[in-house]
Computed example of a mutant assay.
Amino acid sequence: MYATQALTHLVPLAEELDKNKVTPGVLGFIVFAALAVGVWLLMKSMNRHMGKVDFEEAPEAPEGMGAGAGASGSAGSAKQK
């Protein structure tokens, strides 16, 4: 069956609906309210967890040191001793 033939069978069904009487109803309101409460609880939890984060920025390396100077392992610490 072609898509156009399937659509022609559904058109009379769509004409029977009264556009003024179609509403989401009580179930739609309950689902929307549940989603709103869920989002509110998630945001409250996120704010609580973000408040616990203690972030301190790492100090910047001096200009004379390269990016890999601190990661050289035991060879770098041997030079400093």
Rank of each mutant, 00 (worst) to 15 (best):
G70D: 01
M46W: 12
V39N: 04
E60D: 07
V37Q: 04
K21Q: 06
G64Y: 07
V11M: 09
A34G: 01
T4M: 15
N47I: 03
S74D: 14
K21E: 11
V37E: 02
T23H: 13
T8Y: 08
R48E: 10
P59R: 09
K19W: 09
A34Y: 03
A69Q: 12
L13S: 12
F29R: 08
I30S: 06
V22D: 03
L41N: 13
M1L: 13
P59C: 02
M50K: 15
D54M: 07
V11R: 12
V22F: 02
G64L: 13
F55D: 03
V31A: 00
L41I: 12
Q5H: 12
V11D: 00
M43Q: 14
E57I: 03
F32K: 02
Q80V: 15
G70S: 11
P12E: 04
E63T: 07
P59I: 03
P24R: 05
H49D: 08
P59F: 04
L13K: 08
S72A: 13
E57S: 07
P24T: 04
P62D: 10
V31I: 01
F32R: 04
G64C: 09
G68F: 14
A58G: 07
M46K: 14
V39P: 00
P62E: 03
P24S: 09
S45K: 12
A33M: 07
F29D: 12
P62V: 08
E60N: 10
M50F: 15
L13I: 03
F32V: 01
L27I: 10
T8N: 08
G73V: 01
Y2G: 13
D18I: 00
V11C: 04
W40M: 14
A58W: 05
Q80T: 12
V31H: 01
E15D: 08
S72Y: 02
A78L: 14
L10N: 07
A33E: 03
M1H: 14
W40V: 02
A58Q: 06
M46E: 09
V53S: 01
A58C: 04
F29N: 06
A36W: 05
G28T: 05
L42V: 04
A58N: 14
E60W: 00
V37N: 05
R48H: 11
G64Q: 15
V11I: 15
L17F: 14
A34K: 01
G66A: 03
